[in-house]
């Protein structure tokens, strides 16, 4: 597709609506996803997405708006998942899996009963640019704003509950309420993202930006902000890529958005590995109380080692109490007069 054609496409109403919806979805999904990753519930969004398929199918069967039925069923599913998880019945994850598959199978069955083909359902499973109406866009925007307002406004409390529920409970926070709030917000996010990314890939937009962001970030807030930025870029960029394929192909926006987010993860991952390795190497060695002079050990007394350690010698310099050790071939050299002590 030529740049002129792309510009022409961008001036179309349906494309502008889709871009707006993608931008807000890309901001809201990682915001809630950060709390899911913090609680180690990265797959919760996927489970809710599967359950929401039944909601969409019910909408198709009864002739009401699939978006509204999906919201209702997704919230019910999310609350059920949260209750099962909280009760901690013997096999929480198996119970969740049963719910996921039940949701997907039920959805496909009901769609069949409604006499709708797979094509109709596919727009919800993998997203569709052209299916958005004006009302859909306003709906998406309003819900995304609610999600962002609640997650950012309650951030300190949600963070406390997500990172240590027992401490939060003793501190007087209503842990069950906040856990349910996260689950319900995740369900709403799933239905918001349904039109752009699709139900089967929505969880990726909640989780992959967080995984990308946490490669570089050291704090929760920067992870959250970075994830929102990555999500917005991936959602808008993926939509444009999907739109710029030739007209005779049928590329849904969901896969391009997710693949773009994964590409951003793949690009930052080596940086994250390098950063973590560097910070581990620079970690000071602990000062032990039994570091007495009796342990005085002279390194390489045989003179095999003639290298002069210094600021730029290339060996990692690591603090050790009041001096610096140089990490070298699996041991630690501390300069001492004419020679190096082994630490």
């Amino acid at each position: 597709m030529s740049p002129v054609e792309l510009l022409d496409l961008l001036s179309r109403d349906f494309m502008q609506r889709a871009l707006l919806a993608a931008l807000f979805t890309g901001l809201a999904a990682p915001a809630i996803g950060t709390f899911l990753v913090q609680r180690r519930l990265a797959l919760l969004g996927d489970g809710i997405g599967h359950v929401a398929v039944t909601g969409v199918a019910l909408g198709l069967l009864t002739g009401t708006s699939p978006t509204w039925t999906a919201v209702v069923v997704a919230i019910l599913g999310a609350v059920l998942i949260e209750v099962i998880r909280e009760q901690g019945h013997t096999n929480g994850d198996v119970a969740l899996a049963l719910l996921f598959y039940g949701g997907l199978a039920g959805g496909v069955l009901i769609t069949g009963l409604a006499g709708q083909g797979a094509n109709k359902l596919q727009a919800y499973l993998f997203g569709s640019i052209t299916s958005l109406s004006d009302a859909d866009v306003w709906f998406t925007l309003a819900l995304a704003v609610v999600i962002l307002a609640v997650t950012l406004g309650l951030l300190p409390r949600l963070f406390a509950v997500a990172s240590d529920p027992e401490f939060a409970k003793v501190a007087g926070l209503r842990v069950r309420f906040y856990n349910l709030l996260i689950a319900v917000l995740a369900a709403i996010t799933v239905t918001v993202a349904m039109r752009t990314v699709g139900l089967l890939l929505v969880s990726a937009l909640m989780i992959v930006p967080v995984a990308t962001s946490q490669q570089m970030a050291r704090s929760f807030r920067t992870t959250l902000a970075g994830a929102m930025a990555v999500g917005a870029v991936a959602a808008v960029g993926g939509l444009l890529i999907a739109a710029s394929f030739p007209a005779n192909t049928t590329v849904a926006p969901g896969p391009t958005i997710v693949l773009l987010a994964l590409a951003m993860f793949a690009a930052t991952w080596p940086v994250g590995v390098w950063l973590r390795r560097r910070s581990r190497l620079a970690e000071p060695f602990p000062i032990l109380t039994d570091d007495s002079p009796d342990d005085h050990e002279v390194g390489h007394a045989d003179g095999e080692h003639l290298h002069q350690h210094g600021d730029d010698c290339g060996h990692p310099a690591v603090e050790h109490g009041d001096h610096v050790d140089y990490v070298h071939d699996g041991h630690r050299h501390a300069p001492h007069g004419e020679h190096y002590d082994e630490h």
């Binding site: 990753v37 913090q38 704090s219």
Partner: peptide, 27 residues
């Protein structure tokens, strides 16, 4: 003030020392 029995203060997302300590101030 409660210090639960657990090995780690880290969750699934990086959080810095100040953020974790600040959650104790919520009371």
């Amino acid at each position: 003030g409660y210090v639960p029995q657990r090995g780690t203060a880290a969750g699934g997302v990086p959080a810095n020392v100040r953020e974790v300590v600040a959650s104790g101030r919520l009371t």
